[in-house]
Design a protein around this nucleic acid. Structure first.
Lengths: 210, 210
DNA sequence: TTAATTTAATAAACATAGTTTAGTAAAAAG
DNA sequence: CTTTTTACTAAACTATGTTTATTAAATTAA
């Protein structure tokens, strides 16, 4: 009995380790060679198991993708934290916008997976898995609220205002990532983005405030 | 000789007709059953030819998708025209935004193809094929310019301002279409969208105007 | 009219995916 | 030492885009 328990425990640990190995490999493939290289077969080859084995640890490919999804939100959330020391809510919000876009443009594959791709957000589990995304949205809301409290932004429904700002930055990011900015010469793009960010932020700003 | 010319002509016409048939079929499949149903094999089956035949008329699937792409822009452009009778530039721009979003939400498959999907916008040909998109962007620019001229919007680089507005509406559309709005209860979504549109438009509006 | 040639079309195959099934060998339990 | 459970995999299945080799028909040339 004592022995049995030990074996069961060890087996459980091994199972977890295998899951980890698969996820790690998926992540490495993703970062090194881009999203397209994350195939079940490619993962299997790297860990030197057969493709079928993967299915003993994950229901399907989607379940693996969700791990990358989560990883992306982790990075994203961490990066966002650097605005915390900024005292002035308005400056903080501005910086938040800038950081959002630079995360997207510097980690396009992650951003794509997190906010653009069809795959990884599933109908049923969506509510739970999307919680990582919600956390970031809540973070934005806090920031927006601080701006309202300080009189920088017209008081409006918080969800509405935050959604508007999110839509805007996401719009820029996704147009660039999915290559719909061919109208502009490549080299001008950075300053157009910067300009657009300015334009909108200036707009949101209440007129009588500084 | 005269006969030969006639045959060559007829053959050319037949070739064009076949191209048309393929495109029509692709379009019908797309509208009836959604994007996923547009497979080479499905098209082939409908026109009662072998899949290989399609490749005698189109280089690859992308070339067929581009036709849907163009079709989408045609619809989009036509729909936009209904704002033309609106005299006041500001009201016109507001309505432009509303129409943009309702096109996206009522024709999500088209919108996706036009502004979100990776496939149909190709590296090299992009410049030419994207011209349909540019036309719509120019249309927006005219509208924005009218608002600046009438003093509704702070004078800014026209490309920058138009890009900002486009990014915003595209952001809303693409978040909804790609299902990143799970934070909000489904039934509230319409008013949140409406509210966000309001919020941003009110922002852009110059403070001393009306 | 008949032979040679060009053209249109396709069957079959290839390549690449995700995924499932049936079977095997090793580990664990009895 | 036998039975059962577990971990794993080879092979196959489905579905897709695409290519190749071949055939049948239409056209041209004799």
């Amino acid at each position: 009995m004592v022995i049995n328990m030990g074996i069961a425990e060890r087996k459980e640990k091994e199972k977890q380790q295998m899951r980890e190995r698969i996820l790690e490999t998926a992540k490495r493939l993703f970062i090194e060679d881009g999203f397209d290289k994350v195939t079940i077969r490619a993962i299997a080859e790297r860990i030197e198991y057969s493709p079928a084995t993967i299915y003993l640890y994950f229901k399907d490919k989607n379940e693996i993708l969700l791990a990358l999804h989560a990883e992306g939100f982790e990075r994203f959330y961490k990066l966002q934290q650097i605005i915390l020391p900024i005292r002035d809510p308005w400056k903080r919000l501005r910086e938040h916008g800038r950081i959002y876009i630079s995360f997207a443009l510097e980690n396009p594959e992650y951003y794509d997976l997190m906010f653009i791709m069809r795959g990884p957000v599933r109908e049923l589990k969506a509510k739970k898995e999307w919680s990582a995304g919600m956390r970031s949205f809540e973070f934005l809301k806090e920031n927006v609220k601080a701006c309202m409290d300080a009189g920088y932004i017209q008081r409006t429904d918080l969800d509405v205002a935050a959604f508007a700002i999110w839509s805007f930055t996401h719009g820029i990011a996704s147009l660039v990532i999915r290559d719909r900015t061919a109208n502009f010469p490549e080299r001008l793009l950075p300053e157009i983005i910067e300009g657009a960010l300015d334009f909108m932020m200036r707009g949101i700003l209440k007129k009588n405030s500084k």
